[in-house]
Simulated scan of single mutants.
Amino acid sequence: MILRQFLHSDPVGISYLFGCGGKATGAVVDPVGDIQPYLQAADNAGMRIHYVIDTHVHADHLSAGRALAAAAGAEYVLSTKAGVSFPYKAVSDGEVLPLGNVSATVMHTPGHTPEHICILVTDRTRANEPWFVFTGHTLMVGDLGRTELAASAEEGARQLFKSVRRLKELPDYVEVLPGAYAGSVCGRRLSGKPSSAIGFEKRHNQAFTIEDEAEFVRFMVAEIPPAPPEAAKIRAANSGTAAAAV
Protein backbone atom coordinates (compact mmCIF):
# COMPACT_ATOMS: atom_id res chain seq x y z
CA MET A 1 0.00 0.00 0.00
CA ILE A 2 1.17 3.49 -0.89
CA LEU A 3 -0.47 6.42 0.90
CA ARG A 4 0.56 10.06 0.72
CA GLN A 5 -1.31 12.91 2.40
CA PHE A 6 -1.18 16.51 1.13
CA LEU A 7 -2.19 19.23 3.61
CA HIS A 8 -3.33 22.53 2.10
CA SER A 9 -3.65 25.83 3.95
CA ASP A 10 -5.17 28.12 1.29
CA PRO A 11 -7.83 26.88 1.01
CA VAL A 12 -7.70 24.51 3.97
CA GLY A 13 -8.11 20.95 2.75
CA ILE A 14 -6.51 17.53 2.42
CA SER A 15 -5.72 15.53 -0.71
CA TYR A 16 -4.38 11.99 -1.03
CA LEU A 17 -2.43 9.72 -3.33
CA PHE A 18 -2.96 6.02 -2.63
CA GLY A 19 -2.73 2.67 -4.34
CA CYS A 20 -0.80 -0.53 -4.89
CA GLY A 21 2.96 -0.22 -4.99
CA GLY A 22 3.43 -3.80 -6.22
CA LYS A 23 1.17 -3.27 -9.23
CA ALA A 24 2.25 0.38 -9.67
CA THR A 25 -1.32 1.66 -9.86
CA GLY A 26 -2.83 4.49 -7.86
CA ALA A 27 -5.46 7.16 -7.46
CA VAL A 28 -5.67 10.73 -6.18
CA VAL A 29 -8.52 11.98 -4.00
CA ASP A 30 -9.72 15.61 -3.85
CA PRO A 31 -6.75 17.34 -5.50
CA VAL A 32 -6.32 21.08 -4.91
CA GLY A 33 -4.11 23.65 -6.59
CA ASP A 34 -0.96 22.83 -8.56
CA ILE A 35 -1.11 19.33 -10.06
CA GLN A 36 2.67 18.84 -10.17
CA PRO A 37 3.07 17.63 -6.55
CA TYR A 38 0.67 14.73 -7.25
CA LEU A 39 2.39 13.81 -10.48
CA GLN A 40 5.79 13.99 -8.78
CA ALA A 41 4.65 11.93 -5.78
CA ALA A 42 3.28 9.24 -8.08
CA ASP A 43 6.50 9.24 -10.08
CA ASN A 44 8.57 8.99 -6.90
CA ALA A 45 6.51 5.98 -5.84
CA GLY A 46 6.80 4.39 -9.27
CA MET A 47 3.03 4.52 -9.72
CA ARG A 48 0.72 5.45 -12.54
CA ILE A 49 -2.40 7.44 -11.57
CA HIS A 50 -5.40 5.56 -12.97
CA TYR A 51 -8.17 7.49 -11.21
CA VAL A 52 -8.63 11.04 -9.94
CA ILE A 53 -11.57 11.12 -7.54
CA ASP A 54 -13.49 14.09 -6.20
CA THR A 55 -15.64 13.09 -3.24
CA HIS A 56 -18.13 15.79 -4.24
CA VAL A 57 -18.58 18.94 -6.30
CA HIS A 58 -16.70 21.35 -4.07
CA ALA A 59 -17.95 24.80 -3.08
CA ASP A 60 -14.89 26.06 -1.17
CA HIS A 61 -12.21 25.71 -3.86
CA LEU A 62 -11.70 25.05 -7.54
CA SER A 63 -10.99 21.38 -8.08
CA ALA A 64 -7.79 20.34 -9.82
CA GLY A 65 -9.35 16.98 -10.61
CA ARG A 66 -10.01 17.33 -14.32
CA ALA A 67 -6.65 18.96 -15.01
CA LEU A 68 -4.79 16.26 -13.09
CA ALA A 69 -6.73 13.47 -14.81
CA ALA A 70 -5.90 14.92 -18.22
CA ALA A 71 -2.21 15.29 -17.39
CA ALA A 72 -1.95 11.78 -15.92
CA GLY A 73 -4.06 10.03 -18.55
CA ALA A 74 -6.42 9.00 -15.76
CA GLU A 75 -10.19 8.72 -15.45
CA TYR A 76 -11.90 11.55 -13.56
CA VAL A 77 -14.34 10.06 -11.05
CA LEU A 78 -17.45 11.57 -9.50
CA SER A 79 -20.76 10.23 -8.23
CA THR A 80 -23.47 9.36 -10.74
CA LYS A 81 -25.49 12.05 -8.98
CA ALA A 82 -22.94 14.82 -9.61
CA GLY A 83 -24.97 16.49 -12.35
CA VAL A 84 -21.96 17.99 -14.10
CA SER A 85 -21.85 19.10 -17.73
CA PHE A 86 -18.66 17.32 -18.85
CA PRO A 87 -17.76 13.64 -19.44
CA TYR A 88 -16.48 11.69 -16.44
CA LYS A 89 -16.45 8.20 -14.92
CA ALA A 90 -19.70 8.03 -12.97
CA VAL A 91 -19.66 5.71 -9.95
CA SER A 92 -22.51 4.51 -7.77
CA ASP A 93 -22.85 3.07 -4.30
CA GLY A 94 -21.04 -0.25 -3.90
CA GLU A 95 -18.95 0.10 -7.06
CA VAL A 96 -15.33 -1.00 -6.71
CA LEU A 97 -12.39 0.77 -8.33
CA PRO A 98 -9.59 -1.81 -8.78
CA LEU A 99 -6.05 -0.73 -8.02
CA GLY A 100 -3.96 -3.90 -8.15
CA ASN A 101 -3.98 -5.49 -4.70
CA VAL A 102 -5.90 -2.49 -3.38
CA SER A 103 -9.63 -1.99 -3.85
CA ALA A 104 -11.59 1.22 -3.38
CA THR A 105 -15.30 0.77 -2.71
CA VAL A 106 -17.68 3.68 -3.30
CA MET A 107 -20.11 4.64 -0.54
CA HIS A 108 -22.78 7.17 -1.48
CA THR A 109 -22.98 9.45 1.57
CA PRO A 110 -25.24 12.42 0.78
CA GLY A 111 -25.70 15.25 3.24
CA HIS A 112 -22.87 17.71 2.88
CA THR A 113 -23.91 17.65 -0.78
CA PRO A 114 -26.41 15.31 -2.48
CA GLU A 115 -23.72 13.64 -4.60
CA HIS A 116 -21.09 13.12 -1.90
CA ILE A 117 -19.21 9.81 -1.84
CA CYS A 118 -16.75 8.24 0.57
CA ILE A 119 -14.12 5.72 -0.53
CA LEU A 120 -13.56 2.61 1.60
CA VAL A 121 -10.11 1.13 0.98
CA THR A 122 -8.90 -2.44 1.43
CA ASP A 123 -5.36 -3.75 0.92
CA ARG A 124 -5.75 -7.46 0.21
CA THR A 125 -2.05 -8.09 0.86
CA ARG A 126 -2.76 -7.15 4.49
CA ALA A 127 -6.32 -8.35 5.07
CA ASN A 128 -9.73 -8.72 3.49
CA GLU A 129 -11.17 -6.18 5.93
CA PRO A 130 -11.21 -2.46 5.09
CA TRP A 131 -8.26 -0.46 6.39
CA PHE A 132 -9.34 3.16 6.01
CA VAL A 133 -12.01 5.38 4.51
CA PHE A 134 -11.66 8.68 2.67
CA THR A 135 -14.57 10.65 4.08
CA GLY A 136 -14.28 13.97 2.24
CA HIS A 137 -16.50 16.51 3.98
CA THR A 138 -19.00 13.97 5.33
CA LEU A 139 -17.04 12.97 8.44
CA MET A 140 -14.10 15.03 9.61
CA VAL A 141 -12.10 14.83 12.81
CA GLY A 142 -14.33 16.37 15.48
CA ASP A 143 -17.30 17.31 13.30
CA LEU A 144 -19.48 16.58 10.28
CA GLY A 145 -19.79 18.64 7.12
CA ARG A 146 -22.21 21.56 6.86
CA THR A 147 -25.41 20.68 5.01
CA GLU A 148 -26.75 23.79 3.26
CA LEU A 149 -24.35 24.41 0.38
CA ALA A 150 -26.28 22.38 -2.21
CA ALA A 151 -29.68 21.80 -0.56
CA SER A 152 -31.70 23.20 2.33
CA ALA A 153 -29.91 22.81 5.65
CA GLU A 154 -32.72 20.62 7.00
CA GLU A 155 -32.89 18.29 3.99
CA GLY A 156 -29.12 18.00 3.90
CA ALA A 157 -29.08 17.15 7.61
CA ARG A 158 -31.68 14.42 7.14
CA GLN A 159 -29.61 12.90 4.36
CA LEU A 160 -26.45 13.23 6.43
CA PHE A 161 -28.07 11.42 9.37
CA LYS A 162 -28.59 8.34 7.19
CA SER A 163 -25.05 8.58 5.80
CA VAL A 164 -23.58 8.84 9.29
CA ARG A 165 -25.41 5.69 10.33
CA ARG A 166 -23.70 3.82 7.49
CA LEU A 167 -20.27 5.07 8.55
CA LYS A 168 -20.97 4.06 12.15
CA GLU A 169 -21.50 0.50 10.93
CA LEU A 170 -17.85 0.31 9.86
CA PRO A 171 -15.50 -1.43 12.32
CA ASP A 172 -14.10 0.88 14.99
CA TYR A 173 -10.54 0.25 13.81
CA VAL A 174 -11.16 1.70 10.34
CA GLU A 175 -9.09 4.86 9.96
CA VAL A 176 -10.82 8.11 8.98
CA LEU A 177 -8.99 10.18 6.36
CA PRO A 178 -11.04 13.36 5.88
CA GLY A 179 -10.98 16.08 3.24
CA ALA A 180 -10.43 18.97 5.67
CA TYR A 181 -9.13 19.90 9.10
CA ALA A 182 -9.25 22.91 11.45
CA GLY A 183 -9.60 26.18 9.56
CA SER A 184 -11.87 24.80 6.84
CA VAL A 185 -15.17 26.62 6.28
CA CYS A 186 -16.92 23.25 5.82
CA GLY A 187 -17.10 22.40 9.53
CA ARG A 188 -17.52 24.03 12.92
CA ARG A 189 -15.55 22.03 15.49
CA LEU A 190 -12.79 20.57 13.38
CA SER A 191 -9.62 19.26 14.95
CA GLY A 192 -6.19 20.22 13.69
CA LYS A 193 -5.33 16.52 13.60
CA PRO A 194 -5.83 15.35 10.00
CA SER A 195 -6.82 11.73 10.69
CA SER A 196 -8.75 9.64 13.20
CA ALA A 197 -10.64 6.34 13.48
CA ILE A 198 -14.31 5.42 13.41
CA GLY A 199 -14.23 4.27 17.03
CA PHE A 200 -12.61 7.45 18.31
CA GLU A 201 -15.11 9.63 16.45
CA LYS A 202 -17.98 7.57 17.92
CA ARG A 203 -16.74 8.53 21.38
CA HIS A 204 -15.52 12.09 20.92
CA ASN A 205 -17.28 13.69 17.92
CA GLN A 206 -20.44 15.31 19.29
CA ALA A 207 -22.36 15.33 16.01
CA PHE A 208 -21.32 11.75 15.23
CA THR A 209 -22.67 10.49 18.56
CA ILE A 210 -26.28 11.70 18.14
CA GLU A 211 -28.67 8.78 17.60
CA ASP A 212 -32.02 10.58 17.32
CA GLU A 213 -32.77 12.04 13.86
CA ALA A 214 -34.73 15.09 15.06
CA GLU A 215 -32.01 15.97 17.57
CA PHE A 216 -29.38 15.48 14.89
CA VAL A 217 -31.14 17.85 12.48
CA ARG A 218 -31.51 20.50 15.20
CA PHE A 219 -27.83 20.21 16.04
CA MET A 220 -26.67 20.44 12.43
CA VAL A 221 -28.76 23.49 11.49
CA ALA A 222 -27.72 25.45 14.58
CA GLU A 223 -24.78 27.85 14.39
CA ILE A 224 -24.17 27.36 10.67
CA PRO A 225 -20.96 29.28 9.85
CA PRO A 226 -20.86 31.85 7.06
CA ALA A 227 -20.82 30.31 3.61
CA PRO A 228 -17.50 30.20 1.75
CA PRO A 229 -17.02 33.32 -0.40
CA GLU A 230 -18.35 32.79 -3.94
CA ALA A 231 -19.56 29.31 -2.92
CA ALA A 232 -22.30 29.08 -5.55
CA LYS A 233 -19.96 30.29 -8.31
CA ILE A 234 -17.20 27.89 -7.29
CA ARG A 235 -19.59 24.95 -7.22
CA ALA A 236 -20.95 25.98 -10.63
CA ALA A 237 -17.42 26.22 -12.03
CA ASN A 238 -16.58 22.76 -10.66
CA SER A 239 -19.78 21.47 -12.29
CA GLY A 240 -18.79 22.91 -15.65
CA THR A 241 -21.86 25.13 -15.70
CA ALA A 242 -19.99 28.41 -15.22
CA ALA A 243 -16.62 29.92 -16.09
CA ALA A 244 -13.75 29.09 -13.73
CA ALA A 245 -12.86 32.74 -13.09
CA VAL A 246 -14.38 33.26 -9.64
Rank of each mutant, 00 (worst) to 15 (best):
A180H: 04
Y51T: 08
T80P: 00
V141A: 06
T109I: 15
H112S: 11
T109S: 04
H116W: 01
P178W: 02
I2M: 11
A207N: 03
A207H: 05
G73K: 11
T55A: 05
E223P: 00
A232H: 06
W131N: 00
V29F: 14
S184A: 15
A214M: 13
R235S: 04
Y51V: 15
A207K: 09
G145K: 11
M220K: 03
A245F: 13
T25E: 12
A237T: 06
T105A: 10
L149D: 02
K168T: 08
A207F: 10
R235T: 02
V176Y: 03
Q206R: 15
S191L: 14
V217A: 07
E211A: 15
A182S: 14
A45K: 07
A180W: 07
T55I: 09
T135G: 02
G187N: 12
G111M: 14
G111E: 12
A64M: 08
T109W: 02
A42W: 11
C186F: 13
N101V: 00
F208R: 12
V28N: 01
L78A: 00
C20S: 09
K202M: 13
D212P: 02
I119D: 02
H58L: 08
Q5M: 15
E201W: 10
V106M: 06
V246R: 04
I198H: 03
A243N: 03
H61N: 02
H112N: 13
H8Y: 14
V106C: 05
E148M: 11
S239T: 05
